[in-house]
Design a protein around this nucleic acid. Structure first.
Lengths: 274, 274
DNA sequence: GCAAATTTGTTCGTATGTATT
DNA sequence: CAATACATACGAACAAATTTG
């Protein structure tokens, strides 16, 4: 009897889920039923369910019950560049990313434009001084109407004074900001660097994506630094921060020669052998 | 009084942490002290601490107390290829990945080799039939002695019968498996595709990485499918599944022309504006 | 090296609130 | 409105881990 009771009850339920006895979407026995079945107190039952909830196996709905989570068909976004076009996944027209499993409608609302002082992170990536003025363009993005990502791009304010005035207008730049900067300022993106990390969403993000209010579902944060050419080599001119919930997004990177199309989706992975 | 009490207590503590009043590593007041301070029951205090724990702000140590989490300096791994060498980040000699902030010692233990039947996932990626025999080579990898990743590579068993016998030996292939296959079978990797997703670790992974036994810290799972050339275009010949904890790993992808060196690390990110 | 004190972990019981059907 | 089901909150007791004396 080494393991605590709530843990054993959780394992019992996990087995029922993984064996397929409890299918996705199915309702678990109520706390009261589980209480009788395992001869435990309601708090202990709730601890067991909390264990399953933290692992994303079940979700509770007040007034209804506890249910086995439905697997979400993931959005698959390609991050690597088609370098012949000079653009990367994640930036076609209007800063959209190509998404696999086509016929999906990607949209974004009107960008929210602000002039800000560069934070330490932004300054570091753009190689400017902390506090230097930058333009921030923030957008909410959707696929088939469901919230998909929050994206904020930062540009040095210099670009505006140099003539790229549309940067501070709250409109979509139809041709795409990169093309716009190329046309107006002759700034051509020659490469970019993505940094991927995972963290807990903040409140704004949790609300936008309708994530559970515990920190259970986390978010990808992808920082894309765009570079243009100079005599001293490539220098950064744009930073884009995109946030995606990890529970419904995957990313793909292609390198070298790869087949053009994807294979059909298959569910689980089999990691290692114990 | 819309918000529950445990939530308000959690916010109170969060403020103290984010304001720097409680520094990383500092001990929070004990449950008993918080109980008196907020005039709440111990269980309510524990709910508040659970809220902070789920968000990765604090960690509890039985017999000691609750502490503000220390930020971990992340391992930064480059995934994109230096395609002139034909190899990608993630596969230099002995399947090591370059890790930023050099002077770090990457090691791996002796691979565990098994012959298995291809799971649905493996079969799909390698474009073979489910149940077809494959060789699986599993390794634990460390950086500076700390567990860094678990990696399993799958190859069709055909490769062994065709002469690549070292694939089924439990030794490191010093020259690297890709070079070995090139030398023996003239199989040259011309490209690869990475798929990145995040999920809750299984028990083996949690144990190896010493992750807390709730599902709070999740893992990256990176599937790398390697392709070689054929008359019908690139076809897959290798699948590598790597698992990394999200709390201490970040990934970088370069595309086009980018500066060779990284900028100094800066802590936080500032996502969006409300 | 052991015993006591401290601190979090588990489990019970009970009552009341809130969301949904 | 009533019944059902989960959410919050209180109180209490004992267990397990760690530090301290």
């Amino acid at each position: 009897m080494a393991e605590p009771m709530y843990w054993r009850i959780a394992q019992d339920l996990r087995m029922e889920i993984e064996s397929g006895h409890l299918r996705p979407g199915a309702q678990l026995p109520t706390e009261l039923e589980l209480r009788e079945r395992h001869d435990a107190s309601r708090n202990t039952i709730r601890d067991a369910i909390k264990w399953l909830t933290n692992r994303g196996l079940v979700e509770t709905r007040p007034g209804q019950g506890t249910f086995v989570v439905q697997k979400i068909t993931p959005f698959v976004t390609t991050l690597s560049a088609h370098w012949d076009t000079g653009l990367g996944g994640g930036e076609g027209k209007a800063a959209f990313v190509e998404v696999e499993a086509g016929n999906r409608l990607a949209e974004a609302d009107i960008p929210m434009v602000e002039m800000q002082k560069a934070s330490a992170e932004v300054a570091s990536r753009l190689v400017i001084k902390e506090g230097d003025p930058v333009v921030s363009r923030h957008q909410r993005r959707y696929i088939d109407g469901t919230p998909w990502s929050l994206q904020t791009s930062f540009y040095p304010l210099d670009f505006v004074t140099q003539g790229a005035r549309r940067l501070i207008e709250a409109d979509n730049i139809e041709e795409g900001t990169i093309e716009y900067l190329t046309r107006i300022l002759r700034i051509r993106q020659v490469g970019y660097r993505d940094r991927i990390r995972v963290r807990v969403p903040n409140e704004t993000e949790a609300r936008f994506f309708s994530l559970p209010d515990d920190g259970r579902v986390q978010v990808f944060e992808i920082l894309r630094t765009g570079f243009h050419d100079s005599v001293d080599g490539p220098i950064p001119f744009r930073l884009t921060v995109s946030v995606f919930p990890t529970d419904r997004n995957q990313f793909v990177i292609n390198a070298g020669t790869v087949p053009s199309r994807f294979m059909p989706e298959v569910p689980q992975v089999s990691q290692a052998t114990e």
